[in-house]
Simulated assay, not measured.
Amino acid sequence: MTQHPPKVKSADRVLDIFELFTGEKESYSLTEIAKSLNMPPSSTYLILQNMLNRGYLETDRSGKQFRIGFKLFTIRSGYMRNTSLTGEFNQIAERIIDDLNETVCLAIRTEDQLLYIGEKVSTHALRFNPNLGGTLPLHATASGKILLADLTPDELRAIYPSEQLEKVTNNTIPTYSDLLKELEKVREQEFGYNMGETVDGVHCVAGAVRDADGRAAASVSISIPVVRITDEVWDNVHNWIRRSCEELSYKVYRQY
């Protein structure tokens, strides 16, 4: 006689909800979730509220559409800190901090957001403090532009179906047309720039960490308050971005 492992019904339902988000849709309503998983709406509501409170789900402005929340990205970033990519990044970032003492970040793309998976923060009182495991709109960041520049026109349009783009500061790129022009510059220069588009008064330079196929798998960036930028510092930042991206690309993706 075959013995089946014991099941916890509520845990199964939570996992079923997570697995629902591996499909084609990014968000679902309460009714859609209950119907898709053949669950009573009343118990579905209670489970969703618990997942919302714990940060595993979030809602849109109407409060009626549910999507994956920040907590899963935080867990994912914690896991990725133990990978060779973040391990190698930490060693390089230590050298950058010793030389420049400016904040260094490692980031990847998750759908239409930039996810920070590594950081070394400046010891200056005035500094950029990234939120490890946090996300920002791709088009508003230097690293995001690096990762977007690698995408096809169809992939870009899928991320940005509208002409107007979300604004983080008054300097954020406002339209899709402006973004396309900016990405052309990124491809030519091989650097991405954020000139106060995420935080007023902070400039950032980013480069691509490329996999064995030459695709941008991640991005390294250095952020500096404008008051500390000189021509010499700016040149040094570009040199470090170039060197660190080449080193990470080789050590993580191409050495084998």
Rank of each mutant, 00 (worst) to 15 (best):
L136M: 12
Q113P: 00
A125L: 10
L100H: 07
L46D: 07
S43I: 14
L48V: 06
G63S: 06
G134R: 01
G118V: 02
S77G: 03
I117K: 01
T22G: 03
T59F: 02
I33E: 02
L115M: 08
G55H: 08
L100V: 07
L106C: 06
K120T: 03
A125E: 12
N131Q: 13
E88D: 09
P40Q: 14
Y45E: 10
A93D: 02
L100W: 06
L100P: 05
L72G: 10
L132A: 06
E24N: 12
V104M: 02
F21C: 04
G87H: 08
R76L: 15
G134Q: 01
R109S: 10
T59N: 03
T22N: 12
I108F: 01
S29Q: 10
T44N: 01
S43W: 02
S29P: 00
Y79F: 15
F70M: 09
K120S: 14
T83P: 02
R109T: 09
T86V: 15
L20M: 07
Q91Y: 08
K25D: 11
R61W: 03
L20R: 03
T44F: 01
F128G: 00
K64F: 08
N131M: 09
E102H: 14
M39L: 11
S43L: 07
L48A: 06
P41T: 12
T44I: 04
K35N: 13
E19S: 12
S27N: 09
M51A: 08
G63R: 05
N90R: 14
A107S: 15
G134L: 04
V121G: 04
E32I: 02
Q65W: 08
F89Q: 04
G134Y: 04
L136Q: 12
T74C: 00
G63L: 06
R76A: 14
T103K: 08
P40Y: 11
T86L: 09
